[in-house]
Amino acid sequence: MAKGEIVLGCLAPHPPHVVYAENPEQNEPFSEGGWEALRWGYNMLARKLKEIEYDCMVILTPHWQTYVGTHFLGLERFQNISVDPIFPNLFRFHHDIKVDVELAEKMCEAASESGIITKMMRNPDFRVDYGTIVSCHMLNPDWDKPVVTISSNRSTHYYSNEVMNEQSIALGEAVRKAIEDSGKKVVLIASHSLSHRHFVTEAPLPEDMSREHIYNHSQYVWDMKVIEMMREGKMKEVIDILPEMIEQTMAEAEGGGLTWMMAAMGMPDYPAEIYGYQSVIGTGNAIAAWDPNAETRAIVM
C-alpha cells in the first residue's frame, strides 16, 4: 500500500452567511447575495479541488466543542437539518454527509497512542455542526467526498492559548501519521475565521453590504499581518505568535484548527495561496490553501 498523504490544507472560514448568499437548494432561506470577495475566493478554491485527486476531507471545527478530549465522527452517514443557533434566519441547511469511519478510527487511535484523550462519536441522532457543513459545502458543493469531523477541544478555555497550541500540534502529528498509514490522499480543513469579534446587531437585510466592515482597525491589522506571513511561508512563526493574536483579536484559531493543520503538514515554509479576505458581521475571514506540490502551487493573490 502506498503511503498516504495530505494533498492540500485549507483555511476555510464558516460564517453561514456565505452559504446563505449562494442560495444552494439545501438551504431554506433566500438571499440577494453578498460577501462576494469570500464566495468568489471559495469558488476558485473549489475549482482547484476538482483538479486534485483525493479520497477524503478531514476538518477540525470549533463548533463541535468538547471539553472532555477530542472526538471523531464515527458513523457512516448523517442526514438531518442543521439550523444555525446564532443565525437561524440565514442557515437552515438539509444535509446528507458521508463519513470515512475507517480513517476516523485510525486518527482516533493514533491520537490516543500519542497521549491525547479521545472518543469516537457513535450516536446516530448526533447533529453535525454547522462549521463542518459551511466549510465543506463551500469547498465541495457536490458533496461527493466523505468527510471526517474532529471536534475542537477547548484547551484554550481550560488552560491557555499556549497549551492549545501544544495539544493541537500533538493532534496534528498524530493525524498525519494516521493518514500516512491509511494510504489515502486527504484534504485538511481548518474551519475558522482570523479575528473574531462580532457586531451584536444585524442589518435588516443581512446581505446589505453597505453595512459590512471589520469590527475595528486593530483586528484588520492583525489579520493582514498574519496573511502577509502566510504569503511568505512563515507558518512556524504564525503558530508561534498565534497565542498573542488570539488574545488581541479573539481569533477563532483558539479552537486549534490552524495549529492542528499546520502541524499535520509539517509547518509549511512555502507560500500559502490566498483566495480572499472579507469581514462577516465584523469578523475577519481569510480563505487560504497550502499546496505541498510545488508544481501545482499557485500565486492566487
Partner: peptide, 13 residues
C-alpha cells in the same frame, strides 16, 4: 427534535 450533547453523546439522545 432529538438532541445529542456534544461531549456526552454516549449517554444517549
Amino acid at each position: 427534535f432529538t438532541h445529542v450533547d456534544d461531549d456526552f453523546h454516549f449517554l444517549g439522545s
